[in-house]
Design a protein around this nucleic acid. Structure first.
Lengths: 221, 221, 221, 221
DNA sequence: TATGAATGAGTGTTCATTCAT
DNA sequence: AATGAATGAACACTCATTCAT
């Protein structure tokens, strides 16, 4: 109450916007786009439901904004890793580890992406934001690979897009499908020991995949 | 009413059930559990809406049944591969390829599993069916690995569960997230050429992962 | 309960439809399209709100149906006058009187038409019903005029459309604008005496308009 | 802040009021009282929404003010015709023509009046303004009639109120109901030729109505 | 076995109006 | 005088489910 004049908490437009966005992220992550309730978002954000429409126009536009922010966040965090400055192998390991940790710490991201894909990418298809934040990221991984090939530690002819997908896949799938996984494999996928094993397994998978080993992988088809 | 009882009608009941189940699978796959509409399922199956409740009790129970059937189907198809009878490396490659093809041919399976995980596995948690069909499958992969280790083509100390998850992950993730993928990577994920590349990439990934070092992965195909 | 089998009142689809339609006519007439409440229509018809959507699709489609019915009703009543069988002057007087009485007895018709015109005729623009019921009516008035001209009681060169509009106008305007009229002219527009005067005034207006009097109305411009 | 106080702002208040009133007239005319949106009025007037409440108290009071202004405007315009100074027949023709032109040029007036009548004249019932501006107008028409009767060109026993209503009716109805009219009669009611025909038809109607019989309505123009 | 009719509790969205500055 | 932020009540419309036959 002392020090910051003029902005009564209940009247701070930007704060309200942020609270709605945060609440919406949680709701959409928990229930999906279709299952999320605008009422619940309003209640969770302690904002009036009318404000949601004032700031975001509709449930779908709110969802779009949440998605864009989620992608921006992860891409910014990746950029902050400054992988360009690391040796290729370290950079790659860092990326695998980061991806895993990020998914673990931000599980909403996974469900949001799932939801968007259930809807065939409709909300992001024409999002300038997504395209803007994606390009540098794709370029960065490409750069790591190129440097690794140049220094002889990575084998050539690895498609950076496919590599990227695989790095995401092996973390993502394990975590989003941990519930059916638990049933099928009769294990607790969130047990710290199993989580640690998974990270190691993933690091192993990626390193063996890119390694410029004696493996004469010519003839692959 | 007199004379030709029980000959046609008895089969119709079963047919109705099957039509509902087929329609429900499509609807749930397209819209998720929350987004699917009982009316739409009734319309698509050309059955009366009341029949859905007659045969399945509720929308959620119908969803459970659809899921159980979906899992049974893929597990049966895997069993039919008779991987036990193949050399370990061939068996593994066959499994990777089969998994990929099955996902491609039965995309509903992916969305159904996604939906169930959004709901924290609630519908399958106590399903005897799932557990019954899963056990032999897990055992089979374990067997392949063991045989491969014994014959020296696979390295030891590979967790069959982790391997299994990875085989699924690298196909599953690519396909379910193909819409956001298309946006981020600016590629058509369903382009036949890219699909073929992905399968090869996945085969490569798995074989390098399990190969007894130094991996002599000649002859991958 | 005795005599009419099989149709429990609460389960008669056609009856429900009719009750909704009747209630909607009242509501729309009283409040206009925008002011009418679907809830109020449901309550008034003692039908479930859901049924309104089941039978009519939307508030606007319900409004369209109400309008079509209202127009069909008046056109049918006009047809039943069998004006073709009457001498032209009698036919015309009968029409003026009928129009006036119909407006008085069915005040909803006036407000419904007003509402539709506020919405620029959007709901009827492509209504086959309206066009089907209108054509015979327009033709009938044209026929009366023609017969009157032929027999020398009506002057020629009267546009039947303009005549029609005027017949409607002089009754319609008085009745729909009776509230502002009462304020401006400080009279009770619904007082029986004033109503009777108005009808006579209107009959006079129309008869003088069409009369083939010595009036040599050449040169009108 | 220092130096040029109070010069602009004092006039702005009045300007804001006027802008709101103008915007409200358009909105209410287009959508009716129920359909008009306070937000839309604020946007259209480029005034803050709060100002509407500051100056007018409520949406309904704003509507009342708009109506009062609309009536004042037409009554003032009629007064400016100075019909008392014209020969009775000319005065009457001038009035018919003026009424028609005014309705054509100020279509909002028609819809506003319609709206008010849908609401049973509730907003004007106790309006001193309306009564004040109406009295002279009614008296004026009465005067024209009296002069015409005295000079022998009009027949006696014509109720000036009924005449007044009819003059308004034949223009008003044609214009407000032009949309349903277009559908029923399959004509373009706003086509210049049809508009001209209608005006002539109306002049003819009124002149024949008041003419001292045998109506020598030569020279109608 | 099968069906069309009916319903209550929600669902996203809108609106006139007031608050705080 | 003027404004952007906020709200509660209501609105059109939907949905899974049950009733009556």
């Amino acid at each position: 109450m002392i020090g910051r004049k003029r902005i009564g908490p209940a009247r701070d437009a930007d704060l309200t916007r942020k609270k709605i966005l945060a609440a919406a992220k949680v709701e959409f992550a928990m229930k999906g786009l279709g299952g999320a309730r605008v009422d619940a978002i309003a209640a969770r954000s302690k904002a009036n439901k009318r404000m949601i429409y004032h700031y975001f126009g509709s449930k779908e536009q709110l969802f779009t904004t949440v998605l864009e922010e989620a992608y921006s966040d992860i891409r910014m965090a990746e950029r902050d890793l400054e992988l360009d400055t690391l040796p290729p192998e370290t950079a790659l390991k860092t990326l695998v580890r980061f991806t895993w940790d990020y998914y673990l710490d931000n599980p909403e991201f996974l469900t949001l992406v799932n939801s968007e894909n259930l809807h065939k990418g409709r909300h992001l298809k024409n999002s300038a934001t997504i395209q803007a934040v994606s390009r540098p990221f794709v370029a960065m991984v490409k750069g790591i690979l190129a440097r690794g090939v140049a220094s002889g530690v990575f084998r050539p002819d690895i498609d950076p897009v496919q590599l990227n997908i695989t790095i995401a896949a092996i973390g993502y799938y394990y975590l989003t499908n941990r519930f059916t996984g638990a049933i099928i494999f009769d294990r607790d996928f969130m047990d710290p020991k199993m989580l640690a094993e998974r990270l190691n397994f993933n690091l192993d998978t990626i390193l063996r995949l890119v390694a410029a080993s004696p493996a004469r992988s010519r003839g692959i088809r």
